Simulated scan of single mutants.
Amino acid sequence: MSLSTALAGFDFAAPLAFLALPAPLLLPLLARRLPRARRAPAGAILTPRALAERFSGAAGAGARRTVAPAKILAALAWAALVVALAGPRSLSAAPATPVSGRDIMFTLDLSGSMAVEDFEIDGRPASRVDALKKVGAELIARRAGDRVGLVVFAEKAYAAAPLSFDVDAVARTLRDTPLGIVGHSTAIGEGLGLALRRLSQSSAPSRVIVLLSDGSNDAGTTDPNEVARLAAALGVRVYTIGMGVIDTKTFNGLGDPVDFEALQKLAAIGGGEAFRAKDTAGLEAASRAIEALVVGEAGVSAGVERRALWPWPAAFAFLATAAFALTRGRGAGFAPS
């Protein structure tokens, strides 16, 4: 249905139901054409003439008094029931939603080293995972118009949220995912592989993987570089963000360094770019930079909101049927002498 039609404000979900409207008139006509059943002989009860006249006169008067209202109520009940079956509904234009044609899989490291508190949030010490959840959830929530999915990994990879336009729901999933749910090691290849598998089923013109990690690939059997090559062959770009104050070049034996060189290589193979985040501000800057790189013109998708109205005619049909039953009940009584 077009938007202009929807703005008319009303339609029926099953308009063919109105074909049943003349059924009460047609059924008696069809019944008359059916062959009559033979009646078996039956006995008769002799009733005194005066008593028979009194009974027949009272019943006839009651029937005459109730036949017109009963027919009207029956007709109204049937008509209201048919209207309810047709599914009346009100229509209104839904708010327009931008549609970008991009599918983005956020692939986030939740290994044990993400518990290290070398970041700050609002001037207070915070763990890497807390910073990742804060900045990552904000980045996801800003991707209105994109289909966004979420893969978390450590020793194993887990698809936490499928590709969806509901970016707020994906952001909530990230905030609610606990550390350690998929182990404590870092299997970057497994996380990338699962994200690529989800995007390989997508027909979107632009497909992107955003990988946030703080360590080197030390678990799993999948080579992340091979996954990046496959991603490039499939037209999927890979962006990486390395989280951590110390990297493998400046590592002095203390702390948990980030293998930024490996993340740079992944991004280069995958046709994207690599960013380094030493603190929360750097993480926010990296997310903004990636956001700018994957930006593009967005189309607009307008929808229609439908509200079912069938309970109203259904309730009227029920009341009319109840009134019909009461009217028939009163008409079946005998007139006073």
Rank of each mutant, 00 (worst) to 15 (best):
L81P: 08
G255E: 15
A23K: 02
L283T: 01
I290N: 10
A160D: 11
R306G: 00
G303T: 13
I104M: 05
S113D: 11
F260R: 08
A50K: 01
T177K: 00
V238N: 08
L293V: 07
A317W: 03
D11E: 08
R328H: 05
I104E: 11
L27W: 15
L76E: 06
E297N: 06
K156R: 10
G112L: 08
L29Y: 00
L21M: 05
E226W: 01
L108Y: 01
Y239M: 11
E261Y: 09
L91T: 13
A323T: 02
K249T: 13
A13L: 13
L85I: 13
G183P: 14
L293C: 01
V210M: 07
A332T: 03
N217V: 02
I45D: 06
S206G: 05
G87L: 02
F12V: 11
R237T: 15
R64F: 10
E155F: 02
S216P: 12
P24Q: 11
L192C: 02
L212N: 00
A169H: 03
G270F: 08
E226T: 13
A137E: 09
L179N: 06
A169Y: 03
A13Y: 09
A96R: 00
A302L: 03
L192K: 02
N217M: 03
A187R: 07
G183L: 02
S100C: 12
L211S: 09
P162C: 08
R54E: 09
P178N: 00
G112D: 14
R197C: 02
I188F: 01
D122V: 00
A75V: 14
L110N: 04
R330G: 05
R38I: 14
G136V: 09
A59N: 08
K71G: 06
G101K: 01
L16M: 11
A37I: 09
F18S: 06
F334G: 00
P22W: 12
P178H: 00
F153Y: 13
A274M: 14
R229A: 09
I188Y: 03
E284W: 00
A274F: 14
M243H: 12
G255F: 15
G303P: 08
D176P: 15
T327S: 14
A233D: 11
G282W: 00
V210K: 07
A52H: 13
S4A: 10
R328T: 04
V167C: 10
R288C: 04
G255C: 14
G303Y: 04
L91S: 10
T107P: 15
A20P: 12
L179C: 08
D214P: 11
A157P: 14
L46T: 15
A141L: 06
P162S: 04
A13N: 11
E155P: 07
S203K: 13
R306H: 02
A298F: 04
P162W: 07
A75T: 06
P28V: 07
G303W: 09
A171I: 04
P336V: 14
P125F: 01
R142H: 07
P48S: 05
P205D: 06
A320E: 05
